[in-house]
Design a protein around this nucleic acid. Structure first.
Length: 356
DNA sequence: TAGGCCATCTGGTCCT
DNA sequence: AGGACCAGATGGCCTA
C-alpha cells in the first residue's frame, strides 16, 4: 500500500517531508533495526557505531560531555568489555541526526532507483520490442538489449544482410518463453503493418521499390502473437504458399523446419530494422490507431535521414538532472525525443548499408 | 498459493 | 564528509 504511494517519484519527497505517515514508515524501519541492535548488542551494532564519521563524533562531543560514559552500563551485564572505541550512547540528539541522515539517504536512493528505472524505460523503447502496456521486465530488457547489440554487431561485422530467422533467434537467446513470444509477436506485428500499410501508401525510400520487403518469405510466420490473424493482409501474400509458416517452430523447439536450411531462403533478406517494422509509421503522416500501435512496437529507427545533431545539447540521454528533479526521460516525449536523437554511428552505418 | 517482479529501506564500502 | 553505489532484507502486487 504505502509502497505504491512511494512509487510516485513526484510525490515522494514532499510526502515524506510533510506527512506523518511517511515518517512513521521510516520509523518502523528504524524500529526494526533498533530492535535488532537491542536483541544482540553485537558486532553488528558496534560496527555501525564505529563507522560513524569523525565529524559526528565531534558533533557529539557536546553530548558526550553531557551523558558520556557510564562504563558500567556499556558492558551489558556479563559480557566482556568490548575493545575498540567505546560505544556511545544514542542520545536524543544523535538519534535525531541519525534519523535525518537516514531519511536523506533514503531519498537519494529512491531517486537513484527512479533514474535507473527511467533509463531502463528508455532502453525498453529502443530494443526491438516495445509496448507501453506489456513492459518487459528489467532482466529481460537487459537480455534483449544485449542480444540486440550482438545482432547488430554481427550485421556490421559480417557485412551481410541478416537472415531473419537467425536474427530472431539471436534476439531471443536466453529470454524467457513469455518474452520470446512477446518479441516474436512484436516482430510479427511490425512486419504485418509494413506489408499492409507501408507497402501500399509509402512510395518513398522504404517502399517496395527500394527495399524488397514484400518478397520476404518470413513475413507472417506462425506466431503465438494474437496479432497474426489467419487470412489477414500478409497471409494472402503469394509467398505464404511456400510453407514458411513455421518459422518460429525451430526456435521454440517446435516441429523444426528444415526449410530454413534451404538455399531458397537465403534470398532476399531484409535488414533487421525493416524486419522489425522500423518504418516508423509516425512519420508517414498517418495518425490512425493502427499506425500508432505499430509505432509503439517499432524501434523508432526509421527517421534516419537528416543531419546528425552534434554537441552536448542534443544529448537526450545525457545527465539525469536528478538534482534538479528533472529526469532526462521527462524532458521530451519519446516520439519527439527520437527525432532529436543523437544517432549512434552504427545507425548511420546500417542505414547506409541497407540503402545503397 | 507459490513464484516472479518490483519498490523501498538499510548498512557497508568506495569515491571525490 | 558526503554522496554514489551495492547487495540483502522485506513486503506488496500480480498471475498461473
Amino acid at each position: 500500500m504505502l509502497t505504491r504511494l512511494f512509487s510516485d517519484p513526484s510525490l515522494l519527497p514532499d510526502v515524506q517531508k510533510y506527512s506523518g505517515w511517511a515518517d512513521s514508515e521510516d520509523e518502523d524501519s528504524k524500529i526494526k533495526h533498533e530492535d535488532h541492535d537491542t536483541q544482540d548488542d553485537t558486532a553488528d551494532s558496534e560496527l555501525r557505531e564505529d563507522s560513524r564519521t569523525q565529524s559526528e563524533h565531534n558533533e557529539d562531543d557536546e553530548d558526550d560531555e553531557l551523558d558520556e560514559e557510564d562504563d558500567g552500563e556499556d558492558t551489558e551485564g556479563d559480557r566482556p568489555k568490548k575493545r575498540g572505541p567505546k560505544k556511545r550512547k544514542m542520545t536524543p540528539a544523535r538519534v535525531e541526526r541519525s534519523k535525518v541522515r537516514r531519511v536523506k539517504a533514503n531519498t537519494r536512493e529512491r531517486t537513484r532507483m527512479h533514474d535507473l528505472n527511467s533509463a531502463l524505460d528508455n532502453l525498453r523503447k529502443v530494443v526491438p520490442c516495445y509496448s507501453k502496456t506489456q513492459k518487459l521486465s528489467k532482466i529481460e530488457t537487459l537480455r534483449l538489449a544485449k542480444n540486440y547489440i550482438w545482432a547488430l554487431s554481427e550485421i556490421l561485422r559480417s557485412g551481410k544482410r541478416p537472415d531473419l530467422v537467425a536474427y530472431v533467434q539471436t534476439l531471443c537467446k536466453g529470454l524467457s518463453q513469455p518474452t520470446t513470444n512477446l518479441v516474436a509477436g512484436c516482430l510479427q506485428l511490425n512486419s504485418r503493418n509494413f506489408l499492409t500499410e507501408q507497402q501500399c501508401q509509402d512510395g518513398g525510400r522504404y517502399g517496395s521499390g527500394s527495399f524488397p520487403m514484400h518478397s520476404y518469405p518470413y513475413q507472417c510466420a506462425r506466431l503465438t502473437s494474437p496479432h497474426c490473424q489467419p487470412g489477414s493482409g500478409s497471409n494472402s501474400h503469394p509467398l505464404r504458399t511456400h510453407g514458411y509458416s513455421s518459422t518460429y517452430d525451430s526456435m521454440y523447439g517446435g516441429s523444426g523446419s528444415p526449410e530454413y536450411d534451404s538455399p531458397e531462403y537465403e534470398g532476399p533478406i531484409s535488414p533487421p530494422l525493416c524486419v522489425n517494422g522500423n518504418f516508423s509509421l509516425k512519420h508517414q503522416g498517418s495518425a490512425s490507431p493502427e499506425n500508432e500501435k505499430g509505432y509503439h512496437y517499432s524501434m523508432h529507427y526509421s527517421g534516419l535521414p537528416g543531419p546528425r545533431p552534434t554537441g552536448p545539447s542534443n544529448l537526450v540521454f545525457g545527465s539525469s538532472g536528478a538534482r534538479s528533479g528533472i529526469h532526462s526521460e521527462n524532458v521530451l516525449p519519446y516520439h519527439d525525443m527520437h527525432l532529436h536523437h543523437e544517432r549512434a554511428p552504427v545507425y548511420d552505418e546500417l542505414n547506409a548499408f541497407f540503402h545503397n
